[in-house]
Design a binder for these strands. Structure first.
Lengths: 332, 332
DNA sequence: CATCGAAACGTTTGCGCAATCGTTTTTTCT
DNA sequence: AGAAAAAACGATTGCGCAAACGTTTCGATG
């Protein structure tokens, strides 16, 4: 592997001249600049970013720690973050915690060893140890999606607004018995959406019996079971609200298994838009989370914090969009 | 930031003892081991992986250069690669070329500067410069999805088999006029699938007129237009084969815009399975690519190659799965 | 034509670590 | 008891780089 001193020797100049030419950190005469550049080209020199980072104690890297990268919602966020970071000359370490708090802590520590400039974290269900570590290490960090700790910058969807949009839509269509299929246990989003649901229904003068609120669901299979349970009630709901994309898949499965038609027999709506939702039946009425903006804002905030560790914390709640399609009809 | 010599000083031992304790690279007496470990804990020492990598000239990182991470197909592959690498103690730099060859080259060079141990690349439409660079730099690399260069290890779907499965299915259902909506121009997969389609049809004694083969399509909008064109033919196809997930969305859009029913008015099938395909209408008959296995194999191969740069190249074609659902019916 | 200052470049250090080379202490064997 | 071998650890170097510090050269000025 060629080094800066190999270039210096070949060009007959000092290492500092080469360094300064490459980094444009001080004036060097045009002839020497050309000489150095030609030599770099000739011997195929590629700077060693490790040595550079060691010296500068800054790596130009950030860690992206996601609780489940297979989830399309996170894919969109990852995509936006990568794009934004790339634009700023940063490069991203991608890690998947699989929602395991132990793994999460390990990954955070690992990234710290690698001296990332900062971390964007979608916290697991029990992120306390990781978060404490990040604070302790004074490592710049912004939380996305599941906002649970005011010691950090945070970016996510305004879940209260999202649920309210859905409930308003339901109310407009005269639904009074609405079942909600909740997401994973422990997640801030799950709790937020449940509470927002209760609150929004109450605001509209509708009582929510406990049996219309499912248990939390770890996966689509759980969500299917939960949906079946709601549909078996003596007085079943006229509409089902799936609180994320996984639960929606699960709910649709249950509905299909029972041979129910949407929206004729039951209305369905939920959170997390799908790209194909316009072209397949039932055409789902969904909340589209602003993934792009979440990703961009998260990267922005992180870069700000890296630049100034003592700036005040920010929590940003972005407004989602309700895409009304056809899966939620008038209540019977 | 604490260093190894700070630990040494605090513990009253030499830096080499600390290093050897941490890396278990030579015998150290149990008392000193405990002393060192306690001190590490006490002062909160975190090894600097940059310095370590600089010394060892190996980083434990790989670059994952994908042409479009927003594509769910690639999401699945990314997920599998991350999982496999994580299992092996490697960490992944994720980059998106956005199918831009210039960007692709830049990213490859950037990763080289960062001294990644190797790269997994989903090549853009015109990857020559990047590939030449990788060869020149002697950087371990495996290609995924678009296999186009025998100088590298490669892993992808057996597209010939995939198309043959679809064509066999079509033939069984007596389709003779089948239109194909092709993917992006320049991609190896696009060419492979087109040729395989021609070959498989011919094998079945079916002639394929040129007007049933769409132009290549850069995005869903293009695919929609192409589908409209096929459907406007004086003798339109009885079935549409969408050669990937993007073109499928585009094709379904066109079909919906014309008010056609699937499969009653037209049959549809294609490549790239969707998680929700079982629960929405029309239930698409699709080829499921073995994304998991592709990701795992790619990581495997890369690790092998990193271990031994002179081992023979391998090209692995993995068999996909046909999921027969209901979108492809009997020909009229 | 000395002097001074700026222009242009070179020498060297230290970032944090692994590991080579070396030293000291203890044990073993005759 | 003395020598040799083994056990346990320490001093130092070099990985490749940025930049602080130092040196040389040369033109301008009084």
């Amino acid at each position: 592997m060629t080094t800066i001193s190999a270039v210096a020797k070949a060009a007959g100049v000092s290492v500092s001249t080469v360094s300064h030419v490459l980094n444009k950190t001080r004036y060097v005469s045009p002839e020497k600049v050309k000489l150095v550049m030609d030599t770099v080209e000739a011997i195929g020199y590629i700077p060693n970013a490790l040595a550079r980072s060691l010296k500068l104690s800054s790596t130009g890297t950030i860690g992206l720690v996601i609780s489940a990268i297979s989830n399309p919602y996170f894919s969109d966020i990852i995509c936006a973050i990568e794009a934004e970071c790339s634009k700023r000359g940063l490069i991203v370490f991608l890690c998947d915690t699989q929602d395991d708090p132990d793994r999460e802590l390990e990954l955070v520590q690992h990234l710290h060893q690698r001296r990332v400039d900062g971390i964007i974290l979608a916290p697991s269900g029990d992120p306390k140890r990781s978060l404490d570590y990040l604070i302790e290490a004074d490592l710049p960090c912004v939380l996305v999606d599941r906002l649970s700790d005011s010691r950090f910058d945070q970016v996510g969807t305004d879940n209260v607004a999202a649920i309210r949009m859905l409930v308003d839509h339901l109310v407009t269509l005269h639904h009074k018995r609405v079942g909600i299929i909740l997401g994973q246990p422990g997640f801030a989003t799950t709790v937020e959406r449940m509470n927002a649901f209760r609150a929004a229904m109450t605001e509209n003068g509708i009582e929510v019996p406990d049996d219309l609120i499912s248990d939390s669901n770890n996966n689509t299979a759980d969500a299917t079971a939960s949906t079946h349970r709601l549909l078996e009630l003596t007085e079943p709901p006229t509409a089902i609200l799936a609180s994320n994309n996984l639960t929606m898949i699960g709910a649709m499965r249950a509905i299909r298994e029972r041979g129910l038609r949407v929206p004729e027999d039951i209305s369905v709506l939920g959170i997390d838009d799908f790209e194909w939702a316009d072209y397949f039946e039932p055409r789902l009425t969904l909340i589209a989370q602003p993934c792009d903006e979440i990703g961009r804002k998260a990267a922005d905030l992180l870069i700000e914090r890296i630049g100034n560790k003592r700036r005040p914390r920010e929590t940003i709640r972005l407004l989602p969009l309700l895409r009304v399609r056809e899966s939620c009809g008038e209540a019977a």
